[in-house]
Design a protein around this nucleic acid. Sequence first.
DNA 1: CAGTGGTCTAGACCACTGA
DNA 2: CAGTGGTCTAGACCACTGA
Lengths: 237, 237
Amino acid sequence: MKQPLHERIRSDFEARILAGELAPGERLPTEQDLIVEYDCSRMTVNKALSALAAAGLIDRRKRAGTFVARPRVHSMVLDVPDLAEQVRARGQRYGYVQIARALRAADPDEPEEVALAGEGELVEVSGVHCADEEPFAFEYRLVSAGAVPAFAQADFASDPPGTWLLHHVPWTEAENRIGALGASREEAEHLHAAVGTPCLCVERRTWRGGEGITYVRQVFLGDAYDLVARFGAAAPA
Amino acid sequence: MKQPLHERIRSDFEARILAGELAPGERLPTEQDLIVEYDCSRMTVNKALSALAAAGLIDRRKRAGTFVARPRVHSMVLDVPDLAEQVRARGQRYGYVQIARALRAADPDEPEEVALAGEGELVEVSGVHCADEEPFAFEYRLVSAGAVPAFAQADFASDPPGTWLLHHVPWTEAENRIGALGASREEAEHLHAAVGTPCLCVERRTWRGGEGITYVRQVFLGDAYDLVARFGAAAPA
DNA sequence: CAGTGGTCTAGACCACTGA
DNA sequence: CAGTGGTCTAGACCACTGA
């Protein structure tokens, strides 16, 4: 019992929020409730909740109470970008053209698929992102059907797969790998470009509380897209 | 006077640390000192200093006191990469070959240079990064001579310019722009590659407390380098 | 206008650790 | 072993804001 009480309270709620037991928008107990539950002073409860608020996991509003924060697409230092939003922010029309979608078992010979879905099923989608009807990115994506059951039937008319996931399944861990390559024959065809055209290639894996959500590989025309990340000194509470 | 007192204390010290007035390793006043200076209770002082510790700006040690944290190269979510360290971590020999270095006035017609150095001078360096004697990146860099006077005479035998800066002038803000392009004639020549070879292009600007430090443009051979960024849920105090 | 969180006080006991 | 920070208490007054 060397762990401070405020830290125990904090990690209790962190775990419940990351596990989804407390859903976004849901109300947490008041400080008064927690004083009783943990049999401690208000300052101790307040310290725990203030830390969660500083970390962006909860929102606190006077008179209204404390709530699980809505996932904020822009909270991370290097966003998982919402391509649709970025294109529209530049004043262009955004479009997503689906090439294929399938629900199937993970291939035991593909480490990537096993890491994502284990022995379960996954959804495989591919498509092209367009700005003003011109394709600028080709996307291949795998989504764990076990982690995101609703994805197989999701409608991508208004939101492309990446945006749909951002809105429905906020991730907690992510890994990006960014490189450059020349477009393959298939990629070049979908992007209306020549084979070998310099492209930015982004591979990304995301997790939620340790469970794999999605693997995606996006190939951007080099002259049509830049990733920008800006960050400053850590901004405390 | 609507700003909370703990926030005023926190931002006072944040400003003094970022400005360099309090140097890394330097001791801050004790909580007792600050209770007197700000005429408040210990909890208020403690809240301010705890926030700075959580943000990584200070280290607190019992009995010893509170100290300005040593700059930690790896503190940021997406590092400004230390290429030399990365190459060596892969078991390869790292080398930096300087192509040119010059101290000159900022060109008033170049917005990039004016933004960095105003009407002052800057140091312009270019060179090639090598792994096992093979070039993999071409670098063009501008450094504000006013912000980093020692840079003009720095020795890059052991540390290339980027590593030297990381060790001598910790930045507080950074902006990365990442794209793909085909190698130009000059770039291709320095990289021993064909013109048009797909390359990853990273442009970066860094600041320290609002003052520009450096602008750098690095062109990596696409098949020789990937940027990897991994990050998880914000880790509170 | 009443419930909620934001802030602050003036203490207390304790763990740690460097002089 | 004494100084420092870590934690916690049991209160207090206040600002805000939704019922």
